[in-house]
């Protein structure tokens, strides 16, 4: 359970488990509580952070308590929806270095880590640019790199494909599919969910209303319409290849 300081309650009891290496999509209409939920996963919101609410989170055997906050935040990497929220340092290099520097990395070790993360998203040639000189798709990729630089075990993405042009959307999918991490991804882009994630959670009204194979959820027309979800025109979830192939 969790309520924001202005009195709005966003979560009303949520319970689920994600296995190591699994890729899971988190679906649901606007205002379902998806973003609020993922902000709990590394203790940014909720009682650990001194907020209003109750509940329990466990990551890789470590319970989320105040004394483990640093470790949890290293293990769970969060990519925010708006890359401008994530890229707050003067240059791309400063930004990607922010997390590892906080973990205590210095000098050449730090430089290597930054370079490695930028190569993973194909942005190594833009390290010295200011964020406002990048395109939106480039900023989204750098945002992913800022988190990858911390070598997280779980990567949590909020709407990774939003506002991207088709080519940038596909490039990001290629990058995400190539990563060896547990992935939890909030998205309204249902084909994207089907392409990348075998399993999906469906949230509405601050509760989880469905949990199963992405393909089955998308093919359940009643479930979909009851939760304000719609497939793109002429898209048949039963006839396209998914991650299981």
């Amino acid at each position: 359970m969790f309520a924001y300081p202005d009195g709005r309650q966003a979560l009303f009891g949520v319970d689920f488990t994600v296995e190591r290496g699994e890729r899971v999509a988190l679906l649901g209409p606007n205002g379902a509580g998806k973003t609020t939920l993922v902000l709990h996963l590394n203790g940014i919101l909720g009682s650990v952070a001194g907020g209003t609410g109750s509940g329990r989170v466990q990551i890789g055997g470590t319970g989320l308590h105040r004394e483990h906050l640093g470790e949890i935040r290293r293990k769970v990497g969060l990519v925010f929806q708006d890359p401008d929220d994530q890229l707050f340092m003067p240059t791309v290099r400063d930004d990607v270095a922010f997390g590892p520097a906080n973990l205590g990395l210095r000098a050449s070790e730090l430089d290597d880590r930054v370079h490695e993360a930028l190569v993973q998203v194909g942005m190594q040639d833009h390290a010295d640019l200011a964020p406002h000189h990048l395109s939106f798709g480039q900023r989204r990729r750098v945002a992913v790199a800022t988190v990858l630089a911390m070598r997280p075990e779980v990567l949590v993405l909020d709407e990774p494909s939003s506002n991207l042009d088709p080519a940038a959307r596909r490039e990001l999918a290629d990058i995400l599919a190539g990563l060896d991490v547990t992935l939890l991804m909030i998205t309204h882009d249902l084909p994207y969910a089907l392409q990348l994630c075998e399993r999906s959670l469906l949230m509405n009204g601050g509760r989880i209303v469905a949990d199963g194979k992405t393909r089955d959820l998308l093919a359940d027309a009643d479930l979909m319409s009851a939760n304000r979800l719609e497939l793109p025109y002429a898209f048949n979830p039963l006839s396209v290849p998914g991650p299981e192939h």
Binding site: M1, A3, P5, G7, T52, G53, R207
Partner: peptide
């Protein structure tokens, strides 16, 4: 500021003071 009202999964409400 006024106090917040929390509602749990069963619909019980409780009052807490804001942060």
């Amino acid at each position: 500021q006024q106090d917040l009202v929390l509602v749990d999964a069963d619909g019980n409400s409780s009052t807490v003071s804001p942060d």
